[in-house]
């Protein structure tokens, strides 16, 4: 198998790591952008790529977890609305109780979250985009500093 991980810019990765452990913001680049070559190998796509795919597609995305919102629902069941962010934009993810069963803990304890789910597009232009999560990719989720230190083979 072709090892494409070598395309990761190690200097950029060190810089992203340093920013992660020393600051509240990222000044040089979004930390996920430096890991993108590795993510491409896992078929994890960018937020902007979602606009090109048809509704119903099964997609994998990754992002820094920004907001977990659990508004009250009529039925009383908890629905989680996640806002994640990669280097190209925000990604909105909906997590229904079925998916929460196995992954709620991962969601609530991760800084970086990778998910697989169905793409849902709404509106005449199809630019209202969300992903209905089916599973979390636990190997790619967790603390950001650990994610940036991930060993590349």
């Amino acid at each position: 198998m072709l090892n494409r991980a070598k395309y990761i810019n190690e200097a950029a990765r060190t810089r992203a790591y340093n920013e992660t452990v020393s600051m509240k913001v990222f000044c040089h680049a979004h930390p996920l952008s430096v890991m993108r070559p590795l993510l491409i190998q896992q078929n994890i796509i960018k937020a902007t790529d979602l606009r090109r795919l048809p509704s119903g597609s099964l997609v994998r995305v990754i992002g820094l977890l920004v907001i977990v919102h659990t508004p009250p629902t009529k039925s009383g069941k908890r629905v989680m609305f996640l806002t994640m962010e990669d280097e190209t934009g925000l990604i909105d993810v909906v997590v229904f109780p079925k998916a929460q069963k196995g992954f709620a803990r991962t969601i609530l304890t991760s800084e970086v979250l990778a998910v697989e789910g169905k793409l849902q597009k709404q509106g005449v232009k199809g630019i209202s985009i969300s992903i209905v999560m089916e599973k979390a990719l636990t190997a790619w989720s967790g603390r950001l500093d650990k994610f940036l230190k991930m060993e590349v083979h």
Binding site: H69, L90, Q122, G123, I127, I129, S130
Partner: peptide, 23 residues
């Protein structure tokens, strides 16, 4: 375009989605 981060009242995921639909 739904790029409304920072815009008062319209930046939440729901509002961004609604912006896309409502235009």
């Amino acid at each position: 375009s739904t790029h409304s981060v920072g815009v008062f009242q319209l930046e939440s995921p729901g509002q961004r989605s609604l912006l896309g639909c409502l235009q």
